[in-house]
Amino acid sequence: MNEATPDLIEKAALGDRDAFSRLVEHEYDFVFKVAWKWTRNRTDAEDIAQEVCLRLAQSISRFKGSGRFRTWLYSLVLNVVRDAARKASREKRRVEEWSRDMAPESDDEDGTGELWQAVQTLPNKQKDAVLLVYGEGMSHSQASEVLGVAEATISWHLHEARKRLKQIMTSEVAYG
């Protein structure tokens, strides 16, 4: 598919919603394909494409037309890909650190089997917060939306869950 016309891009940049909608429709496949090439994961590529559309809405007015639109759009996609990779890396490290901090020395591969069994014994709100943030890799903000509570509430539930899990895991090691 060819690049969007300069007229369509200009109208979208000036705030024409219909033009912006047509622009997104025209460029979505390009955005998705670039995201897929970098992630090799359909779900991640779809998430990235959606984020690119949001960022495009916020930044299209800054496109000056001095270069090719696709080049500018490509750099926008790569920025979102890099942001997603950094976020995934942070989330993975956080989950690994959390699992390491919470898991006792054990005979299972890395101690996380017992940890996740212990998570099942938590009060429902704490268990939900742990499973969404550490099990599903959601941010505190995303988990707060899913559970319909404030982000600070998620943080508090996680804090309380950590304390309770340390007690559970310590008593299992002591009495196991």
Rank of each mutant, 00 (worst) to 15 (best):
Arg22Phe: 10
Arg22Cys: 11
Arg22Pro: 01
Leu23Thr: 00
Leu23Ser: 02
Val24Asn: 00
Val24His: 04
Glu25Val: 13
Glu25Gln: 11
His26Tyr: 11
His26Ser: 15
His26Gly: 13
His26Arg: 14
Glu27Thr: 15
Glu27Ile: 05
Glu27Lys: 11
Glu27Arg: 11
Glu27Leu: 01
Glu27Gln: 14
Tyr28Pro: 12
Phe30Met: 07
Phe30Arg: 07
Phe30Ile: 02
Val31Thr: 08
Phe32Arg: 00
Phe32Leu: 02
Lys33Gly: 09
Ala35Glu: 04
Lys37Asp: 02
Trp38Gly: 12
Trp38Asn: 09
Thr39Pro: 06
Thr39Phe: 06
Arg40Thr: 06
Asn41His: 07
Asn41Pro: 00
Asn41Tyr: 05
Asn41Val: 02
Asn41Ile: 05
Arg42Glu: 05
Arg42Val: 05
Arg42Trp: 05
Arg42Phe: 03
Thr43Ser: 08
Thr43Val: 05
Asp44Thr: 05
Asp44Ala: 06
Asp44Asn: 06
Ala45Cys: 00
Ala45Ser: 00
Glu46Trp: 01
Ile48Glu: 06
Ala49Phe: 08
Ala49Ser: 11
Ala49Gly: 04
Ala49Val: 02
Gln50Pro: 09
Glu51Leu: 09
Val52Ala: 10
Val52Lys: 05
Cys53Leu: 07
Cys53Ser: 06
Cys53Gly: 01
Leu54Cys: 05
Leu56Trp: 09
Leu56Gln: 08
Ala57Tyr: 03
Gln58Gly: 01
Gln58Thr: 02
Ser59Arg: 07
Ser59Lys: 06
Ser59Met: 09
Ser59Pro: 01
Ile60Phe: 03
Ile60Val: 04
Ile60Asn: 08
Ile60Cys: 03
Ser61Gly: 14
Arg62Gln: 12
Arg62Cys: 09
Arg62Ser: 15
Phe63Ser: 15
Lys64Asp: 14
Lys64Gln: 15
Lys64Trp: 04
Gly65Tyr: 03
Gly65Ala: 11
Ser66Phe: 12
Ser66Leu: 15
Ser66Tyr: 13
Gly67Ala: 12
Gly67Leu: 10
Gly67Ser: 13
Gly67Asn: 08
Arg68Gly: 10
Phe69Trp: 13
Phe69Met: 15
Arg70Gly: 03
Arg70Pro: 01
Thr71His: 08
Thr71Leu: 14
Thr71Ser: 15
Thr71Val: 15
Trp72Ile: 03
Trp72Val: 10
Trp72Asp: 13
Leu73Pro: 11
Leu73Glu: 13
Leu73Met: 08
Tyr74Asn: 13
Tyr74Ile: 07
Ser75Asn: 13
Ser75Cys: 07
Leu76Glu: 10
Leu76Tyr: 04
Leu76Asp: 13
Val77Pro: 04
Val77Arg: 12
Val77Trp: 06
Val77Leu: 09
Leu78Pro: 06
Leu78Lys: 02
Leu78Asn: 04
Asn79Thr: 10
Asn79Val: 03
Asn79Glu: 10
Val80His: 12
Val80Ser: 14
Val80Pro: 00
Val81Gly: 13
Arg82Leu: 09
Arg82Gln: 10
Asp83Cys: 02
Ala85Ser: 05
Ala85Thr: 10
Ala85Lys: 05
Arg86Ser: 04
Lys87Val: 11
Ala88Ser: 12
